[in-house]
Amino acid sequence: KFGRVHERAEGPAKILAIGTATPFHWVDQSSYPDYYFRVTNSDHLVDLKEKFRRICNRTMISKRHMFLTEEILQKNPNLCSHNEPSFDVRQDILVSEIPKLGKEAVLMAIDEWAQPKSKITHLVFCTRSGVDMPGADYQLIKLLGLSPSVQRVMMYQQGCFAGGTMLRLAKDLAENNKGARVLVVCAESSAIGFRGPSEDHPDNLIAQALFGDGAAALIIGSDPKMGLERPIFEIVTTAQTFVPNGDCHLALHLREMGLTFHCTKDVPPTIAKNVESCLIKAFEPLGISDWNSIFWILHPGGNAIVDQVESTLGLEPNKLQATRNILREYGNLSSACVLFILDEIRKKSGREGLKTSGDGLDLGVLLSFGPGLTIETVVLR
């Protein structure tokens, strides 16, 4: 008597548009150690500064975009301390800036989509910054002038794996609601975790050397309108798992001094060791076991992770080039990073006149991972 209210779509979910945005301000990685130790009044920690310089040199990052300028840091000195309470200051900045950054990426996506924004039916927003109620999803709806009846899902504090999570959720929403057009937004800022150095917490140096700011937005829907919408990728399958006891290797915690970062040297080999089982589960039903026969979007948690995944799986050097390019130009953008790589690989395919948006290949994989050593596996066509 009370059956399904919403009719299912006929076809699989497809990515119809991609937009990205970054803050205008950026830092050069080669000179960042001098800048970082100067603005945090830590130049007296000579040995720690040299250690940080070595870490920065190993990241293979060229530059990173950041909202925090020297002027902002001078006005808010607690942000430059390692342990002073600064959460309220971070909140005041990020509750406002995260939706604005997301808006810039959304406008780029809508411009490519070339359809009225009134056709957006759902919003899925993800960030690890600016936790608030009502959330960044609500603020973004107002900034864009979208209908208050847009169906919203707000996900805070997920971390680097969440780019894949957003695709998984959007696929379910698009395929189970005929005519749905799902706006996916990942907006991230390193301002939540920026803090001064400490000899007692070397993990913090890794975070300060890796993370950048950026937002990515996608429009996802099934059954694209012929002649009006141009699909870029099809989302074939999605899956999530985590490595048992992985939280002892990688975890982040909200504290009075901001978001703290805990990471062990076992993260790269542990991820590399567990990736292939995810690939087998995803691609065995499709008859694929040659990992060089697919295109790759791999989250660059750090250069060591990229190198070890490449080595463990025997990947050809060009397979992870898009990942390395984004890491070099932006650093680790947390949940937004794989979506930047997705954009990079389709643009490169277009520039080179390849037959598909995925490096000329039919199928590919998007792998994202993060806290708890959670792994998201997304098969794309």
Rank of each mutant, 00 (worst) to 15 (best):
N76P: 12
L367N: 15
H6R: 08
Y35F: 02
L254K: 14
N78V: 09
V275P: 00
K117M: 08
V338Q: 15
S334R: 13
I110V: 06
K14N: 12
A282I: 00
M108C: 06
R128S: 14
G370H: 14
T260P: 14
E84S: 12
I375S: 15
N41M: 03
H253F: 10
I18Y: 09
S289Q: 10
K142T: 14
E329Y: 00
G360R: 05
G3V: 04
P269E: 13
H82C: 13
V236M: 02
P231I: 01
H122T: 07
G370K: 15
W113E: 04
F2I: 10
Y330F: 06
T237A: 05
Q29C: 09
S334M: 02
I15H: 00
S293I: 01
P134M: 09
E70H: 01
F52E: 14
Q308M: 13
G145S: 06
E329T: 05
L228P: 10
N303C: 14
I305Q: 09
R4I: 08
T264M: 15
K347T: 03
G11M: 11
L286Q: 11
V378L: 15
T260Y: 14
A109P: 04
S357G: 02
D88M: 14
R90W: 10
C278R: 05
P148G: 01
V106A: 14
S293V: 12
R381A: 00
D92S: 13
A272N: 00
Q91A: 05
R128L: 11
P285W: 14
L143R: 09
C278Y: 04
N83T: 09
P317F: 05
H299R: 10
G135A: 06
K119R: 10
L94G: 12
A239S: 14
I288P: 11
H25W: 12
L333E: 07
V236I: 10
L101K: 02
P231V: 02
C278Q: 13
F87V: 14
L315V: 06
Q74S: 03
P371L: 03
S357H: 02
V379T: 12
R255F: 02
L361I: 00
I294N: 12
D359S: 03
G19Y: 00
W113A: 02
I110D: 01
F261D: 15
R381T: 04
G258S: 05
D290L: 02
S335P: 12
A17V: 06
L279Q: 02
K100N: 12
F261P: 14
N318A: 09
A136M: 14
N83L: 08
L361Q: 12
E112D: 11
E276A: 10
E376L: 01
I93W: 12
I280L: 11
K103D: 03
E112R: 06
L250N: 15
V106F: 02
P268A: 11
H253P: 15
L45Y: 15
T260R: 11
K142E: 12
L279A: 02
E234N: 05
A136C: 12
L286R: 06
A251W: 14
T20V: 06
C278V: 11
G364V: 00
D34G: 09
V378K: 15
L320M: 09
P300H: 12
F125L: 12
Y330C: 06
K347M: 11
V46W: 02
V46C: 04
E10Q: 03
I141T: 08
S368M: 01
P12G: 07
L298S: 10
A9D: 07
R381M: 00
R54Q: 14
D92I: 01
V106S: 14
V309Y: 01
P300R: 07
F283Q: 09
I61T: 10
L16R: 02
K75S: 15
N83Q: 11
H249L: 13
G350R: 15
N78G: 11
A251P: 15
L228G: 05
G258C: 09
E256W: 03
A322I: 13
L16E: 05
D247W: 11
A239K: 12
Q308I: 06
F283M: 04
T121A: 00
L94V: 10
V365G: 15
Q29N: 07
A282P: 02
D247M: 05
R255C: 10
I341A: 12
L79K: 02
E256Y: 06
I341F: 00
R53A: 06
L286E: 09
L367H: 15
P231W: 02
K103A: 06
T323R: 01
L339G: 15
L73W: 11
K265Q: 10
K355Q: 04
Q321N: 01
I232E: 08
C56W: 14
F369N: 15
T22K: 11
T264V: 12
E284I: 04
T237N: 11
N318W: 12
D362A: 00
D359Q: 08
N318P: 03
P371F: 05
W296K: 10
R346D: 05
F87P: 06
A272G: 08
F242C: 11
S293D: 15
H25A: 05
E329R: 05
M60T: 03
R346C: 01
R255H: 10
W296R: 10
R8D: 05
R328V: 00
N325E: 14
I326F: 13
I232S: 09
Y32G: 06
L339A: 09
E316S: 09
I93C: 12
T69G: 05
A304V: 07
A21C: 04
Q139R: 09
G130D: 11
I305S: 03
E256F: 07
A109L: 00
I288F: 01
W296F: 01
S335W: 02
I141H: 04
A17R: 03
I61V: 07
L361F: 07
H82T: 14
A114P: 01
H6Q: 07
E229K: 08
N76I: 05
H262G: 14
M66I: 03
Q115C: 03
G11W: 05
T59A: 11
I18Q: 03
Y330M: 00
L146T: 03
Q29Y: 01
A251Y: 00
G301P: 15
K103S: 03
F369Y: 13
Y32P: 00
K51R: 11
F67C: 11
P134D: 08
S30W: 14
K119W: 09
E104Q: 11
E84C: 01
S129E: 13
T270C: 12
K273N: 08
K119A: 08
L228R: 05
T127H: 03
L339V: 12
D290N: 04
A272R: 10
E310Q: 13
T69Y: 11
K347W: 03
V46R: 09
M133G: 10
K348I: 01
C263L: 13
N325D: 04
E104R: 14
H253L: 13
K49A: 05
L354A: 12
N57T: 09
P268E: 12
D28C: 04
L286T: 13
M133I: 05
V89A: 12
M108Q: 13
S31V: 02
V365T: 15
V306R: 05
Q29R: 03
L16N: 07
G19M: 04
A17F: 07
I375H: 13
Y138K: 12
D34L: 10
L254A: 15
M108N: 11
M257R: 11
K75G: 10
T323C: 15
G370W: 11
G358F: 08
A114H: 00
N292C: 03
T241M: 12
V131I: 14
P231N: 04
V306T: 08
I375C: 14
T237D: 13
